[in-house]
Design a protein around this nucleic acid. Structure first.
Lengths: 216, 216
DNA sequence: GGAACACTTCGGCCCGCGCCGAAACGTCCG
DNA sequence: CGGACGTTTCGGCGCGGGCCGAAGTGTTCC
């Protein structure tokens, strides 16, 4: 169980945890951006990043004088959400700005490459009613056809995976299908990021689009 | 992401991780047993247990002068295996005793309340061939009938869940079905613990039984 | 009642590690 | 070439937390 402690230790520091939380938006961040985000000195951030990369949680790709880092893959995102949902919604954040921000996150957000929050759960429920997935959150035959009509192409990656939502405490839709739908929704302008955060809203166009697809 | 760091911190200590690893056998241990297992003073163990319980990872039930603790539920076991499998099989354990013990664990073991290791993966493959579960590891209609013939009764708990095997790096069968099958196999003497460890072997009777069920 | 036992609380030690600032390195741009 | 900038390395500081032993509480058994 030595290995367990080592992975846990990587995430046990609040600065490193903040890094991972920021990277959950699925994008690549530079070392400086993360340092500013977590309010630590660049030198401190650099050391943390090295440890997270060596631990296999992050990957880097260097470009000129920049060091871009991102999560090492969907499996990392799933692990992070699983752990976060375990602790569950802690005490309500204090302060107007913070609480409205966290409300926005609860309403809808991206979780690495798919949708989470109330929006993510609504999507899952809709797909369930449409028969795209069954009660155990597995893809159905007609569901696969439905997805292909939206441009989905099967790959090595599992089509659907359950990812525990840390605000709703309910599994939502991850995996290749979840990622594809999220991508399509962004392309069509159905969902939009709020500022530069992970929070996401369904646009008016999105509401129409969802209804036309048969989603609630 | 503060919450994430708190959960991680609980598991970031090698003594607490060792406790959790021991408790993955699904049984309740006393504080002293765990202390001896992790080679720390009883006073140290006591403090660790309090923290793990407050963190929601463990539950206790006191009986006379004993303090029994066990994992707080299957969700904890799943989280632990997910994190352990992430780190993956580290360097081979050194020493004859240690390496043969870890070999036995890799061959077959219990993971909280279901089977894991090569044995667990073999069970999953067999159920897949029988059509009890499908490729996405979801229960099928005939599969549910098949389970009920073995005394399975559906409950609130999900019938099947994927649990990542930390030695095989492949999902195996958890959830209510996994727990029920493990229980039945123990009752019928088809599987047996090696000593008092989590390691498990398929008995000769078990080999016959598995064949009769159509498992490989 | 008294002795063994399981566990807990407390005080104190000490190591690990997160943090910073200063200085060095490499890259980009004018 | 020189200056700005993103990043890294190093030394040093200070806190948190894991550990133990000693003493205390509650339970069981004789």
């Amino acid at each position: 169980m030595e290995a367990l402690a080592q992975v846990a230790a990587l995430l046990a520091d609040k600065t490193r945890a903040a890094f991972c939380g920021a990277l959950l938006d699925g994008r690549a961040w530079t070392a400086n951006e993360l340092a500013a985000h977590a309010r630590v000195a660049p030198s401190t951030a650099s050391e943390h990043l090295t440890r997270l990369i060596e631990g296999g949680l992050l990957v880097e790709h260097r470009q000129g004088r920049h060091r871009y880092v991102s999560l090492a893959g969907p499996h990392v995102a799933e692990l992070l959400e699983a752990m976060t949902s375990f602790a569950g919604p802690g005490p309500r954040p204090r302060g107007l700005r913070a609480s409205s921000a966290s409300e926005a996150m609860a309403r809808g957000r991206t979780c690495y490459d798919h949708l989470a929050g109330k929006l993510g759960v609504a999507l899952k429920s809709g797909l369930l009613e449409l028969g795209v997935v069954n009660g155990d959150l597995a893809i159905t035959e007609p569901g696969l056809v439905w997805l292909k009509e939206l441009g989905f192409e099967p790959s090595k990656r599992p089509v659907v995976r359950a990812c525990v939502d840390w605000t709703e405490r309910v599994p939502h839709l991850a995996g290749a299908a979840g990622a594809h739908l999220c991508e399509v929704f962004f392309e069509r302008g159905w969902i939009q990021r709020i500022g530069t955060t992970r929070a996401v809203v369904l646009t008016p166009a999105g509401e129409v689009g969802w209804r036309e697809l048969g989603l609630t």
